[in-house]
């Protein structure tokens, strides 16, 4: 009898602890840079009184998604933040996510085209593709030929850049896939898009395995010009004083940075609060100041040297087509490049 009471007491105590401490906490997997993730957690705590634990921080969204998949039967985290929406669509398709549409989308009048049409992920930031070139090598090797600095996608086709362009490989990274999709959407048809890929291929020195591989290689002078995510490029340029110039070409591609609640999340209510928080101006500002990413909210200031999102001319984008053509376009790309 005594033992039963004791056991019950212990059980109650354990339950009590579970709910007392745990309900006011959210566990976050972040596919963002470390500083942004930590500052978001701190700001969330200050604003809501809930604590946020960044249990995992890796910039590669694929690795974070992989972790969620392997741990799935016993979900360890509540929310996954960062990474372009394709990763979240993929997680949703695998049954790894919980549906949630934040009321903030409506109350803050955020453009609904940045939200998952199926209601799983929430778009909370945007990023656009940029062209970058090595200033020194451009000045020494290209400028004397009377060629203007690269400013449009078609400029990269100039034969002067033969063997001097760094592109990325859609077979190995989702980010690079969006870059191929950007060409299709920009030029209006699959045929024209892949025609561009074919012409560019003649100039490509190397297809990097990551979407941002050109930042390192162009900075190091391994090649003269490349393209990458604008926010990552501008940020690395600022923090490392890289000898590169960054331009946003017209009709460029973009990504929607998403956040989602993981299925069987141990702290569902806190997780929803965290998603709401990501749509706040405060979160947008932290993300913009550290990661140079654009908030989906209007009026969030950007760091010095970052052109406002409104000034960037985006290619007409078709989210559905981008998601539906992954295997098809990867295959066409491979056939052209032999990669």
């Amino acid at each position: 009898m005594k033992r039963t009471v004791l056991a019950l007491a212990l059980l109650l105590f354990a339950f009590g602890r579970l709910f007392a401490d745990d309900a006011k906490k959210v566990i976050v997997y972040a596919a963002l840079d470390e500083k942004t993730a930590n500052e978001l957690a701190a700001a969330f705590q200050k604003e809501t009184g809930y604590s946020a634990e960044i249990a995992l921080q890796i910039e590669q969204a694929g690795t974070v998604a992989g972790r969620i998949k392997t741990e799935a039967p016993n979900a360890r985290a509540d929310v996954v933040i960062g990474g372009n929406s394709n990763f979240h669509t993929d997680l949703a398709a695998g049954g790894y996510l919980e549906k949630y549409t934040s009321p903030v989308v409506k109350s803050a009048a955020i453009d609904p085209r940045f939200m998952d049409p199926d209601g799983y992920w929430t778009g909370w930031y945007l990023g656009a593709l940029c062209i970058l070139y090595n200033e020194k090598r451009y000045n020494e090797e290209i400028k004397p030929k009377g060629i203007q600095p690269p400013a449009t996608w078609d400029d990269l086709l100039n034969p002067a850049y033969k063997g001097q362009v760094i592109a990325s490989n859609p077979a190995t990274t989702g980010g690079a896939y969006l870059m191929v999709a950007a060409q299709v959407f920009r030029l209006g048809s699959e045929k024209a898009g892949f025609d561009y890929v074919r012409k560019l291929h003649a100039n490509v020195a190397q297809y990097t395995k990551g979407a941002n591989g050109s930042i390192l290689l162009v900075s190091q002078g391994e090649a003269i010009v490349g393209f990458a995510w604008g926010h990552d490029t501008l940020k690395q340029k600022a923090q490392g004083n890289l000898p590169i110039v960054v331009v946003f070409p017209r009709d460029t591609g973009f990504e929607i940075g998403a956040a989602s609640i993981i299925k069987n999340a141990p702290h569902l209510e806190a997780a929803r609060k965290f998603i709401d928080f990501l749509l706040s101006p405060a979160a947008g500002k932290i993300n913009s100041a550290n990661g140079y990413r654009y908030s989906v909210r209007k009026g969030v200031e950007t760091p010095a040297g970052v052109p406002p999102f409104e000034s960037i001319k985006l290619a007409p984008w078709d989210l559905k087509a981008a998601a539906a053509n992954v295997e098809n376009w990867k295959k066409q790309w491979s056939e052209i490049t032999g990669q």
């Binding site: 590669q60 969204a61 694929g62 690795t63 974070v64 998604a65 992989g66 998949k69 392997t70 990763f87 993929d90 997680l91 190995t172 990274t173 989702g174 980010g175 690079a176 395995k209 990551g210 979407a211």
Partner: peptide, 12 residues
């Protein structure tokens, strides 16, 4: 390729 399946596409 194996590593990049995960890193680039989340494909474990």
């Amino acid at each position: 390729e194996a590593w990049l399946r995960v890193e680039g596409w989340g494909d474990v």
